[in-house]
């Protein structure tokens, strides 16, 4: 009889650890899946790709205008830093990444106009008191034979 009692206790214990192991597996898999989906949703690769191409095309279009133009890019790009280089547009996420030439930067070439000078400039948002990036818009001015990108104040 005693033997049966010990056996039953051992069986319950075994069942308990078995269920506990399954619960642990569920928690681990659930955590991994949520992290994966969260990483995908917060990913900025597509945004950087889109912005670099869009801004490059806008520069190409503004080059063609016969007169002066004042253009404000309608999308809020406060998370990113845009570097207008001689022959391409580069988009970064943070200034320190740019400084370290991080491979997460995305660039797209511009069709450079020999008659119009594009000002080489880095346009970036300011940090507020809470160390978060303030919203800002990009503006591009064509004045005479110069193309000047800047923040729209």
């Amino acid at each position: 009889m005693q033997k049966r009692g010990i056996y039953r206790k051992a069986q319950i214990e075994h069942e308990f650890y078995y269920i506990l192991a399954q619960l642990l597996l569920i928690v681990l898999v659930g955590f991994a899946l949520f992290s994966f989906v969260g990483a995908i949703s917060q990913g900025t690769l597509y945004n950087k790709n889109y912005i670099s191409r869009d801004v490059a095309l806008i520069i190409d279009t503004i080059y063609a205008s016969p007169g002066d133009i004042h253009y404000v890019y309608p999308v809020d790009i406060s998370e990113f830093i845009i570097n207008f280089k001689k022959d391409n547009v580069e988009v970064y996420e943070e200034l320190k990444l740019y400084e370290k030439m991080h491979p997460s930067r995305i660039s797209y070439p511009i069709l450079v106009d020999r008659n119009i000078a594009l000002e080489n400039k880095i346009v970036s948002p300011d940090l507020d008191i809470n160390l978060k990036y303030e919203g800002f818009q990009l503006k591009i001015d064509k004045v005479g034979d110069k193309l000047i990108p800047d923040k729209n104040e």
């Binding site: 095309l57 080059y63 106009d113």
Partner: peptide, 15 residues
């Protein structure tokens, strides 16, 4: 889009 931007640039730009 890039092709049409180039076409418009060639046709309508003063240069």
């Amino acid at each position: 889009a890039e092709a049409y931007v180039l076409i418009n640039r060639i046709i309508y730009s003063p240069y």
